[in-house]
């Protein structure tokens, strides 16, 4: 049993059996932002990153090849969809699945860049993201084991269901591992990869899932 309506009163709850989706002012605003940035990724042409010699006049612009562009755009759109799903889902297991999808897509967006530093950063980040699935899925399974349900609405409306604090901490830890921009320094290296609308999806999705997990932890 969590706090009353931390994200505002839900507008409506859409149920497909156990799978449920719910729209509160908070989740809707995050969803719309994910949507807007996904649209940017769909229609924007990539930037041509300019490298300069600091203190000098020499500069050159990097070009993004068409194949790379297509792949990264696909990954960025997938990442946008995954974060949109993570924003509005009302099912804890789906939430963790969407978050691990965001983790893979983040790696995919930067991994297409043929630059050794960027690839190394992406690889290290991928290792962190993959090992973060343990606390992430673990938390979802433990919630199911202690309360018998994975539905956030159920956990929120039924006062007798209490999720242990340790499990909440595990969930937050998992999300941090999957996509927490501020806590993973190598990601800054990833952000230097050229291709603006795609790279921005990395930081957007990690911030969005962080914002959502705060709400989830408060709700359950």
């Amino acid at each position: 049993m969590g706090m009353d309506n931390p994200g505002g009163i839900p507008y409506f709850i859409l149920e497909f059996g156990d799978e449920l989706v719910y729209f509160s002012p908070y989740t809707v605003s995050l969803f719309i932002l994910a949507l807007v940035f996904t649209l940017f990724a769909v229609i924007a042409k990539p930037e041509r990153q300019v490298d300069i010699v600091f203190g000098g006049d020499a500069f050159y612009a990097k070009e993004t090849s068409l194949a790379e562009l297509k792949f990264r755009r696909f990954m960025a759109i997938a990442c946008g969809f995954a974060s949109m799903g993570a924003m509005v889902t009302g099912d804890l297991f789906n939430f963790t699945l969407f978050i691990s999808l965001v983790g893979i897509c983040n790696v995919g967006i930067v991994a297409a860049v043929k630059n050794r530093h960027v690839q190394n950063a992406a690889y290290q980040y991928g290792i962190v993201a993959l090992s973060a699935t343990v606390p992430l899925f673990g938390a979802a399974a433990l919630i199911a084991a202690t309360t018998g349900t994975l539905s956030m609405v159920e956990l929120w409306s039924n006062a007798s269901l209490a999720v242990p604090l340790v499990v909440k901490a595990l969930l937050v830890l998992g999300v941090m591992g999957e996509g927490m921009a501020p806590f993973y320094a190598a990601k800054a290296e990833m952000f230097r990869a050229p291709g603006a609308p795609y790279v921005i999806m990395c930081s957007l999705s990690s911030l969005l899932i962080f914002l959502r997990v705060i709400e989830v932890v408060l709700v359950i």
Binding site: I127, F137, A140
Partner: peptide, 26 residues
């Protein structure tokens, strides 16, 4: 649990494949 393991497994394998691809390229 059976229903949950399958997606979990798929996501895990996908991540592993993606990482090995990156390793090969890197």
């Amino acid at each position: 649990a059976e229903a949950l393991i399958l997606p979990g497994l798929v996501v895990g394998i996908a991540e592993l494949l993606a990482l090995s691809q990156i390793y090969v390229t890197k």
